[in-house]
Each structure stands twice: as C-alpha cells, then as structure tokens.
Design a protein around this nucleic acid. Sequence first.
RNA 1: GCCGAUGUGGCGGAAUGGUAGACGCAACGGACUUAAAAUCCGUUGGGCUGUAUAGGCCCGUGCCGGUUCGAGUCCGGCCAUCGGCACCA
Length: 946
Amino acid sequence: MSSERRKPYPFDQIEPKWQNIWDERQVFHAVSPGEKGFDPEKPKFYVLDMFPYPSGAGLHVGHPEGYTATDIVARYKRMRGFNVLHPMGWDAFGLPAEQYAIKTGQHPAITTHENVAKFKSQLKRIGFSYDWQREINTTDPGYYKWTQWIFLQIYNSWFNPETNRAEPISTYRGTDPDSVRLAYVADVPVNWCPELGTVLANEEVVDGKSEVGGFPVVRRLMRQWMLRITSYADRLADELTELEWPENIKTLQRDWIGRSSGADVEFIIGWADQNVPGILALEPRETWFEKHNVLVPQPLNVFTTRPDTLYGATFLVLAPEHPFLPILNLPDEWPEGTPDNWKGEDIEARRNPLTAIEAYQRVTSAKSERERKADIEKKTGVFTGAYAINPANNERIPIWIADYVLLGYGTGAVMGVPAHDQRDFDFAKKFGLPIRVVVEPFYYITPRKSGEEIPITNPVNTSFAVELAEEVERQKRLAIRYNPSAPDRAFIDTGVAISSPTQSEIERLSDYCDINGLPTPDAKEKIIDWLEQRARGKRAINYKLRDWLFSRQRYWGEPFPIVWANGKHRGLDETELPVVPPLLDDYKPIGTGEPPLTRSKEWIRYSDKAVRETNTMPQWAGSCWYYLRFCDPHNDQRFVGGETERYWMSGQKPGGVDLYVGGTEHAVLHLLYARFWQKVLFDLGYVSKSEPFQRLVNQGIILGEDNQKMSKSRGNIVNPDDVIDEYGADAFRCYEMFMGPLEQMKPWSTHGVEGVARFLARVWRLLMRENQAGEWELSRKVKDVDATRQQEKLLHATIKKVTADIESLSFNTAISQMMIFVNAFINAETIPLSAMRTFLVLLNPFAPHLTSELWEELYAKFQPDLGDITDQKWPRYDERLLVEEEVEIVIQVNGKVRNRMKMPILATEEEMKAAARTNPRIQQLTSGRTIRKVIVVPRKLVNIVV
RNA sequence: GCCGAUGUGGCGGAAUGGUAGACGCAACGGACUUAAAAUCCGUUGGGCUGUAUAGGCCCGUGCCGGUUCGAGUCCGGCCAUCGGCACCA
C-alpha cells in the first residue's frame, strides 16, 4: 500500500519513451523541395502557431491550448497524406530580458537562452509534433540579419500611387527620394517617461503614467524612424475580404484602419469687417475674384463624410494647434456684438482674439489625454474673430478653435453642422450658434402642441435603392420623434435633403447645387460633383491609421542597418549585415532619450565621417516575417529560398499559411504589421503571396478554476507540468480540447481533467490487462475477429464525426464521439482487433503517446509489418455501413411530440403518413377533429396538423 | 456612445429549421471490497399525475413580439455579460 496513487496506466513511462523515439527518428521533419526524400506528389499544409515570447515564468495552460489544436491538425493532415510544415520558434527580443540585464549586468542573450531551453522542454513534454530542425530565434544574428535586410528593402523603396504598390526607390522621379521612402525619419510626438529615460508604447501608458513604476509620461517630439504603413491602408482594408479570418478580427482591423470617404471642401477666409464686397455675392466667388482682379485667398480645407449637409454648416472649427491660425488674418478686435462666452473662459485673455486664442491653446496643451477624454461631454472653444465663406451658399460663418477637433485627423478642421452631428450640436447649443436642419428622416413623428402625431413620408428616388429601402423600413419601424423646427439632438442618419438650398438662397445665388429631396447618398454624390466642377472641393478618403513608429530607445532589439553622415542617413550594404549590437556594461537607458547603444563609442563610429543609427527596432519586427523564415530557416544566402517559399506558401487563396492559431491580443498589431511587410515583399517580388495567413483562428482565454482570469495575485494559475505529472500529457492535451469550443473563453476544471484521464485509462484497459505480477499485457479479449454489425456502424459513424470535427476544429465533439465509441466496447466479451486499430488512428492526433504504445502492442503480436501508428493512413468511412435499417419516427400533432414508432428506413411518405394516422394514440388525439395537413420529413417525423 | 461576440440543467458544454440537454463533471443509489480507493452498473431540467418499476400531461434554451405545420436555431425590438474603439468630422 504505497502512499503514491497508482497510475491508471503507465503514461509516465510511455510518454518519454515515444518522445525520444520521435526525436531520434525525426519523424516530424518537414521535407522541403530540393531536400532528400521530397515527394512532389504530396500536397503541402502549413499550420502555424503564434510563436511565444520565452518569459522566465515558463508555459501556462493558455499557451498549449492553441498549440494542441494545431498539433492535432498537423498530425491529422500528415495521416491524410500532406507534407505538413508545423514549426516552432522564439520571439525573444523584449523588455523583461533587458530589465533583467539592467539589474544583473548579465547579457540578455544568456537569460533568453535559459528561458528558451525551459520553454522547449515544456513543449516537448506535451508531445507536440514540431519539426525542431526548423526552430528559429529572433535574437539569433543569423535570423535578425534578415530582419535588417528586409528593413533595408523597405527603406530602399517607395509607394507608387499610380501602380498602387511599392517599387524600388530608383523608380522614383521626384527630387527628394527621402520624402517618399517607406521607412523614413520624422519628428513625432512620443510617450516619453523621464524617470525611466525611455519612450513607451501607448499600451505601456496607463492614465498618463508609466505602467511600470507609475512615473509621469509626457508627450515629446523626438526624431524617430517611421514605416509608411498608411500607404497600404486601402489594400490592408480591402484584401481582408478574401481571408478566412474571424469576422470580429477583420472588423477590428478595418476599424483600426478607419477608412471613411467623403470630401475635402474648400472654405475661403472671409474678412471680419465685411469691407470686401461679394461675400454674399450673387455670383460664383471665382468669377467675383476674377472680375475684381483679386487673387483667390488660400482656402481652408475641411474633411467631411457628409458633404450633403454643407448647407447646414453654420460655423467652422479648427484644432487649437492648427497651422492655419497664424495666417488667418485675425482681426485685432472682436467683431461687434461678439458675446462674452465666445471669447474664452480666461477673463484676462478676453481683450482680443489673439490673446484669447493663445490662452485657449495654453489650457488645451496642458490637458492630458486623460483630461481631454474626461471632458468629452463639455465642449469648450474660442471664437477666432475670423470668418469663412461657405462654398455652397456664399454665406459668411464664424471660425472657431476647439479641442474637440483633432489636428491629427483629416485636415484638422471641420465644418460645424449642428443639426446633423452630435458634437457640433452640443457645441452650437453651448455657444448659441444657429442650428439649421437640412436632412429629414425618411419617416418620423413630429411632436405637436396638441399631442397628435403626424407621420411624414418622403419619396425615395435613388441609385442606392436596396440599401435605402432597408433604411426607410428601419426608420419607419423606429418612428423617430423629430421636430425640425426645434431639434433636441442631431439627426445623424441618412434621410432626405431639405432646404438645400433654401428658397431665399435660390433667389439670391446665381449658381447653386440643388439637392432638395434627394436621399443622402445621392445628395452626397451630386454636391461633390458640383464642388469638383468649381474646384471648391474634391472627393477624399481619410484614415485613422497612422504611420508606424518603428524605433525604440532600448538595447535588446535589432539595430538599424543605417549610418548617418552629414546629417543624412543611408542604408548599409547587404554584405555588412548583420549589424550586431555591442556588449555593454550598463544596459540602462541614459535618461536623455539617447538610446543605450550610444554608450559604446567604438560601435557608433562607423567611419571617419559616419556614425551608426543607435535606435533599435520594436519587438514586432522579428514576428513580421518569421513565418517565411520557417520555410527555409538555415538559408544564409537569402531570407528565404525562392523555391521553398513558393512551395510552402502556395495555394489558391491569397494567404500562404493554411492555418494560423493564436490569441486575439494581436488583432491589430502583429497581424496588421505582418500583412504590411508581406505586401511590401510581395510588391518587390521577393515572395509569391500578397497575404501571409489564409485561415486564422483565435483560441479563447482559459480562466482559472474560479472563473477569473489567471493571475499570480489571485493564485489561480495552473501549471501544465503539474497536470502532466498527475494525469499525463495525453490527458492534458485531450482535456484542453474537450473543455469546449476552441475559440471560446472557458474555465479550467481539475475534475474535468480527471474525467478525460478516465477516458484514456478506459482506452488502455480496453486492450491491456494487468497480470498477476502486476505487469501490463495485451488483453485476451482482443481477437482478430470481425466486428459486429452494430460495432461496425459505430466505428464508421466515429470515423465520419471525428474527421469532420477535426476539419472544423470542433475537437470537443470529436472527443465526445470517441468516448461514446469506447463506452460501447468497454464491457464487450471480445474486442475486434480491426476496429481497435482504426480507432487508435482516430485518437492518435489527440493522444499520440497512448495510441503509439497501444499500436505497438497490437502490431508486435498481430501485424509486425505495419510500422508505427504515425505512418498509418487516416481511415475512410463507408456511408453504406452507417445506414440504419429501421429508424424511430416521431409523430407530432401540431408540432408537439405525441408518439414514436419504428419504421423501415426506406418507408415512403405515404407509408409514414398511414402509419402515423393509424397509430392508436394519435387516433385518440385526433378523433373528432379534421386533419388539415400532414407534413412528412423522411426518416425523421410526421407532423399532423389539426 | 459606437462596433463585435456571447446568453441552453448544479457546472463545462451538444443539437444541417424537425425528439432540447449528446459527451464529460458534480450529486445520489447500487455492485465488487473486511474497509477505502480504483473500477463497473443505474438515476439525475422543473412541476403535476401515476405506480401496473408502465404510462400520461404541463412548463422550460436571457426577456418581449413575429415568420413557420414546427424556432435554441430565422426576423424585429429590448436586457445582461465580455471584448475592442472611443470627440476620427
């Protein structure tokens, strides 16, 4: 009676045994074209995990969830005859290793090496079928040499808007190539933390303080490397369509890119004193300027998605920092009758527009991001004293500055249309600006004094008929309460243009664009055409996406392959790669914003005249192309060999990796960046595919047993090593998959692991028994006999279900089916060998160790020439064996189940009807009632409607 | 506020518009055992009825409504939870 719990089966022996065999024989090595043993007949399958950052903490149970899923697919696809590429590597540049180096002075490469060893041994314990010959590490000079090389390709190219793709910089015909490179240097605002002496990523800043240490973070202009990802905004958004990605990830990327189309509309500056005639001209403004021989003043551009509301623009708002302000020709005094609250909150500064603007700018720039966001409800702003001319109706409208307009988006200026934009509405209400309704809902209810409600419909005449018909229906259902003469909020939906222009404008203007009665989409088109014809505006598209800030002031990252001479940068030659960072005594940031690499004076000095770039690349760089390197990890001539790349990334669809599994957290970072690099490399002809990942699946987060996120502080972290010690790797794998749908968030349950472990133990005991000496031997029940009809049917149903479920990644139901299978055999007197052999193959991707061992037991005794289980073909099912002779037919009355009956599978509809009607219970229920209808679903049910 | 996802027993979860709750866990009962563990068998959505261990009836997939012979599934509206974005003109 030992204190140690007896293992239900000897997984502690068989698991290491098979892992060693796989290792020694290199069973899972993927053979590339040109390599010995390559079989061109085999189709390829590339199944990829998001490679981990090897942290000191080791694996947690979340990592292996996705890894197990891909491993099952990889093992399954191999048995289906595919040449499977299933690699693993390490995304090992990053802050923790660097922080550790700062503390200890030990080179980050050493900690990285230790962590990698730990991760690798943990992964091997789970029995993943990775091709370890293809292991890569982003911090390996042999790897980052090519990261630097790709950077040089990006640096040495530009985006040709005419061809809509990247081209070598040599094809650029302009005077300043540096202004169009895809990698460029610019002064940009960054999150600078003086205390930590480094810039921080947005994610590392919480409430205006550093996530680590809680030190204040300020925005500061710094010279940085940028990648021109915005050039690819359209393609990154459009080419999502063909990818088999979760819809929410696509939406996230589209939202992040944030494309909106509309128009840039030109407003010209009007003068405050109105001493220039023609502002309210009866003629087109261009004609007026020409006639009076006056230069057309520089226009002020505003971007709008709703040019159809131009007649409702009653003011203009610029961002407080807008560069146009100094040339706005600000008046020295407030125009007559300017209300006090238009002059800003600072009493002192109200003397004149200039002082008021300066005061406002001071207040806004002092506000943190946080404060700006907190004040979202309260609109603030200052009238500039200047006016602009609305190009649609020549009306003079006031120009304001307000912090609700952002300099970074569009033109940094908006037209205020309070009736149709909620922010403009709030602003207008606060400052008493006019609100002019120019769009009405298709259908609405007007509140009237008497309380009666009058529905109004407008005719729809549009080229967007289908979409609009739906919108009209929607508005009809909603029956919007709306009062055009005194709106209580902005109406921001589509509708019908009204008062555009108004009757008095029609009478006053010699040239106008009439969009009255047009539904919004048509009105937009018409007015943009009108503006374009008069050069007062043009179609425009804007993006939320910003260029990618690509440099960091850190040590543990790829150095840039760039040198500086005479204030100019230039790329190194390919032969000078890799640029290896110097060894340092002190890895700490310097504090001034100078990267730590500047400490090494010898390293910086490139030649008498040139110095090296000392920034490093961000963590994302290595992961932008690692999936390509896996195709050809040891190539020292090229980042990836042409033939191998074309082979492993091949396929009908745009993406080369057939299945990519990882967490949602990378939805807009890694997954967008990698697509961007792939497209650049594709444009330059280095790779064969325009997209990296064809099918993407996000595994859900695994919560702790208490249904909370796993965290050290909650103490609910589950360590895979403990689970494997207790229940074995196969049980661990199967439980990870049995928990629920892969993509769903779900809690860990120790009892659940036990259940799955019991299932595997039953599989073991199905074939093995313990003899008197306490040794396991093949059960005598296992005989080379035919399976019964019932067993055969169940076996084929199981083949069918497991196959379909692996294809759809529904691993939980595949395991359920295998449990059903085993439960049916557990008490059988004889266990037919052939059925077991097939079953073991089905279970092999899930529980590779157990099935390998059992296979060996069977093979040793019965079929010594069969080879290992990993060499077997995936079984096929026979549809004919699945067919029942008799099925249970449900009889419903009015859709409610009232009785059941057995019927032959081939029973005709008439036979089923007749049987149902003559069923005594049904007769009882339907007696005295007329049968109005009988619905028959073959093999399923009869529904009698009375 | 906007966008997206999700809502089914005590729990994790199954269900091409056609028998809701497969499979597993937990719980309860039984067999084996001196005993326990392990294993095996059985019961298990709620309520009513019945007891001839049969059987029958009603309710039930977040809430309200609709389409349909029939809705967890489709449509409309609402609520809740989670995730993302957040003054993007």
